[in-house]
Design a protein around this nucleic acid. Structure first.
Lengths: 136, 136
DNA sequence: AGCACACACGCAACAATGTTGCATTAAAAA
DNA sequence: TTTTTAATGCAACATTGTTGCGTGTGTGCT
C-alpha cells in the first residue's frame, strides 16, 4: 500500500505533506509519536502535523496507540478501521528503555465483567517492559 | 486508613499539603488527574503538587493509572505496592463522556505471547466506554 | 524545650506540548 | 482555465511539565 493509495481510498486530498507523513508510517512498523515524525521531515510545521494526524485519525488511516507512556503515539491502521469506528482492540508493547512501541496483533484482550451500567466501547492492552534489543 | 497513617507507614514527613492531597484521594474512589487535585485545594501550588505526586509514587502510596486518555492520572495503591515495585497489573475503566477513571480490581490481564527476546515487566488493561451515569 | 539539619515549600524562569485564528497557497471541481 | 474548497504556514496563545534557589517547617538530637 502506497501513500497515494491510502489517501485515495480514504477520500483525502493528495498533498506533499500528507504523502511524506504516510511514507514515514509505512517505513516504520511501529507506533510513532508526534516528535518521531516531526524529526524525520525537514522543515516540518508542527501545527500542520497536529492537524494532519488528527485528520488521519478521523478518517481511519491511523489510530492512537496507547502504550502507557506519557506520550501520545499513532500507528497505521491494519485496514479494518474506517471513518465510523476504529477497531483498536489490539495490544501494544512499550519498551521502557528505548521508548518504542510495537503492535502485538496476536494477543486478544479478555472479556470483561464491568460494574452494572458500564458500557465498554474499546479495550486496550499494554505490555510494558524491554524489547529484544534493550533486554540485553 | 488516614492521611497521617499513610505518611507514617511510608516514612514520609507529615505536612499540611501532603495530608490535604491524601485526604482528596481517600475521599474519591477513583483515579485523579493533576488538575482534579489542584482544583480541590485552595491556593495549591502547581509545582509542589507535581513533586508531591512524584514522591508519593516513588514511595508507593499512589500509582499511575493509565486510562488511555491524554491525561496522566494517579490512584491510591491498594496496599500491596511498596518502595521497590508497583504491582499495578489491574485494570482501569475510562469513561469517554465524563473522563473519570475507575479501578477494576476483578479483571486479570491475560498472559502473553510476546515476540522472542521481549521481557514484560507490567501489564495494563484499559476499558474505554461509558460509566453507569453517562451511559443513559 | 531548644537547636541543628534535612527536607518540603513557594516562587521565578523556562521548556515542551497542544490549540485557535487568519491570510496564503495548492488541489479538486466546474 | 477559472472557480471553489480545503490544506498549509505563521503568529499568538493556552496548557502542562521541569529546574534552580532562597525560605520555611518537620524531625531527631542534646
Amino acid at each position: 500500500m502506497s501513500p497515494i493509495e491510502l489517501l485515495n481510498t480514504h477520500h483525502l486530498r493528495k498533498t506533499q505533506f500528507r504523502e511524506k507523513v504516510l511514507d514515514i508510517f509505512l517505513r516504520h512498523d511501529r507506533a510513532l509519536s508526534h516528535r518521531d515524525i516531526e524529526s524525520q521531515i525537514s522543515e516540518a510545521d508542527r501545527i500542520t502535523l497536529y492537524r494532519t494526524l488528527r485528520t488521519f485519525e478521523e478518517k481511519g488511516l491511523i489510530h492512537k496507540a496507547i502504550d502507557g507512556s506519557d506520550k501520545l503515539k499513532y500507528a497505521l491502521c491494519a485496514g479494518h478501521c474506517d471513518v465510523h469506528a476504529h477497531h483498536d482492540h489490539h495490544a501494544h508493547f512499550h519498551c521502557a528503555s528505548c521508548g518504542q512501541t510495537f503492535c502485538i496483533d496476536e494477543v486478544q484482550p479478555p472479556g470483561i465483567q464491568t460494574p452494572p451500567g458500564f458500557v465498554v466501547e474499546s479495550t486496550h492492552l499494554i505490555f510494558n517492559g524491554r524489547c529484544a534489543l534493550c533486554a540485553n
